[in-house]
């Protein structure tokens, strides 16, 4: 740990002297608002992934407000949200007995040079394809990989940009999804970004340390490729092993998207997700297909979506309340970004 910190500070002090003073940017203000209607074919909430959980109800997502400012080489981001998606359905809020807000991002960044920067605070996780904010996702419902992985990480990280095509991040983090650590700064994480061709970016991520209930290591690949003006392909694959053979998960999700008109893009999310065995307790696996459209008009995006999930172990319920291997839902969401 000492050596790691010494290395960071020696790089920082060298690059600081070489860096040129950057101009001051105006205060940036942005945010989003989202609301949705969902109808579950079993007539009750059935699919156990995050957000958009209410059945047959016009329900709220969240209002999200973000501030950003850069002065010279230092910048900060403060992003806060209110509403079910950003409060009761987000883990830190539940742990805090339902506080009235949820911090999405709260960090300070310092660019020691054009290539080297350091960031400290509470940030959206670097693991995975999907995020909490509906503005950052194509689908309105979320994947099993997102639901079971980390949402956010508090910590300190250093990023070195070798070129526009390669960068490396390494950092020390608290346990997942907590504003302050319960088991100390207990995780180490890293991210290698490579962009082999223009339009294709891949992130190889590792996070090892304390999760909400124990310890474990996640390896994650998140990549997307804008193959043509109309067609984009995304992929997320992850493997999580909890320490002491306490289970974990593995999964893969594919995200093809095609723009069929200037304002209309159709997309599919196909996912396979397996919860691993824990001792004699058998794991289980889900498959999910989600068909989504994004219809844009200025800052507004309408998101109609149909989702069909399957699990042979019958974890879902049918209309009569009996165990069922399949679940389905339709939702229509409106997301406004400003």
């Amino acid at each position: 740990m000492k050596k790691f910190l010494s290395a960071i500070f020696s790089i920082a002090s060298t690059t600081c002297a070489l860096a040129q003073e950057a101009p001051t940017s105006p205060l940036e203000f942005s945010g989003s608002v989202d609301t949705y209607y969902k109808y579950d074919f079993a007539k009750k909430s059935n699919i156990p992934t995050s957000f958009a959980s209410d059945h047959n109800s016009v329900s709220l997502g969240m209002i999200d407000l973000a501030l950003k400012k850069k002065t010279g080489k230092a910048s900060f981001v403060g992003e806060i949200s209110f509403g079910p998606r950003g409060q009761t359905q987000s883990i830190p809020d539940a742990a805090a007995n339902g506080s009235s807000f949820h911090i999405q991002n709260l960090y300070i960044n310092y660019d020691f040079s054009d290539k080297f920067s350091m960031t400290a605070g509470y940030m959206g996780t670097f693991i995975g394809y999907e995020v909490i904010s509906p503005v950052g996702n194509f689908n309105y419902s979320t994947s099993y990989l997102f639901t079971n992985g980390p949402f956010q990480n508090a910590g300190i990280k250093a990023t070195y940009k070798f070129s526009d095509k390669v960068s490396l991040m390494a950092g020390l983090f608290n346990d997942w999804n907590l504003y302050s650590a319960t088991r100390g700064v207990s995780s180490i994480g890293g991210q290698l970004m490579v962009s082999p061709v223009e339009g294709w970016t891949a992130y190889l991520n590792v996070l090892s340390g304390a999760d909400p209930t124990g310890y474990g290591t996640i390896e994650d690949l998140t990549t997307s490729y804008q193959i043509s003006k109309a067609f984009k392909l995304g992929l997320n694959a992850a493997n999580y092993d909890k320490a002491d053979d306490a289970g974990g998960y593995a999964g893969v999700a594919l995200y093809p998207q095609v723009a069929v008109a200037e304002a209309v893009t159709l997309g599919l999310r196909g996912e396979y997700f397996k919860i691993k065995d824990v001792g004699a307790i058998q794991g289980t696996s889900y498959t999910g297909l989600t068909f989504t459209a994004n219809i844009k008009s200025g800052g507004l995006t309408f998101i109609p979506e149909i989702r069909l999930d399957h699990n042979g172990d019958k974890p879902f319920v049918n209309k009569t309340g009996g165990a069922a291997p399949n679940a389905g839902q339709f939702s229509l969401a409106a997301v406004y970004a400003f």
Binding site: S30, A66, K68, Q104, Y107, M123, V131, G136, Q226, K229
Partner: peptide, 13 residues
């Protein structure tokens, strides 16, 4: 806006 609340290009085309 990306996961860190920074504005980034959505495409390269």
């Amino acid at each position: 806006r990306d996961r860190y609340s920074n504005y980034v290009p959505t495409t390269n085309i």
